[in-house]
Amino acid sequence: MSTSPSAAPAQGQAWDFSDVTRSNDSLRRFLHGLPGVDQVGADSRAASLGTRSIKTTAKAYALDLAIRMVDLTTLEGQDTHGKVRALAAKAMRPDPADPTCPAAAAVCVYPDMVGVAKEVLGDSGVHVAAVATAFPSGRAALDIKLADTRDAVEAGADEIDMVIDRGAFLSGHYLQVFEEIVAVKEACVRPDGHSAHLKVIFETGELQTYDNVRRVSWLAMMAGGHFIKTSTGKVQPAATLPVTMIMLEAVRDFREATGQMVGVKPAGGIRTAKDAIKYLVVVNEVAGPDWLDPDWFRFGASTLLNELLMQRTKMTTGRYSGPDYFTVD
């Protein structure tokens, strides 16, 4: 399954992408030079990893880890300040009945809600992530996307989830996509020099092929994304196990080549605790245990958290729990 790109330099050697990203043609040559993905093989490997049985103490560990990895998300037109405040409170104390329950990783909201979320979260350690760059379609002029990003960063967002221009990517304007990511990354820098983490959303449901997923992963990593994220959650199919596996292969190979670690975030469509555990198995088997950490792997989800909490309660009390005992959102 190793997929080191043919152009990769010897391990340990500093990787300089300036050659690759010199022009659209060179970038295209590099991305299309990546080995193709065997779709049937990828599907079946992801399916076989999904059959692992995770029980008892391993399951308890996986559930807590998954809770710590959740980016609790609300991205609706009907979001109110009250809902964002409630969500932020939930991210800090997902299960108020059980003080041993860990906090979620972050709250993910639209840029105008960042201040509201920040107010509640304070220095609790739960991050605020904001979707920017004309989420979810990404169809806006670059300066609007950058202004959107700066607004969110100024309001105190710790993480920016940007969407790529899928139209440009699909029509082969790779350099345009690359430069946009670079520009957004620059817009993530705060006046004090610290920088908000950048997650790059691919919307893999619109990218048609697994080859494209691998290409766009490399493109985003070369452009300096801290995280690569599958989807906005607004398009079906959203995150799937094989797509996430291909992205995990990409970050693994990228670290082999450059020494830099990039995080992965599947988002949308992960609803059950069992699904979440399948993802964790794939993370461990494909990328390695280094990625089993909220700094390197996240779930973009809303309903998933309650499912994880119900399973957690089942493990601690020995009886099945129900949705009546957890907040609705």
Partner: peptide, 9 residues
Amino acid sequence: PWLASHMDV
């Protein structure tokens, strides 16, 4: 017993 203790029954 699982149904009797089930919190959603």
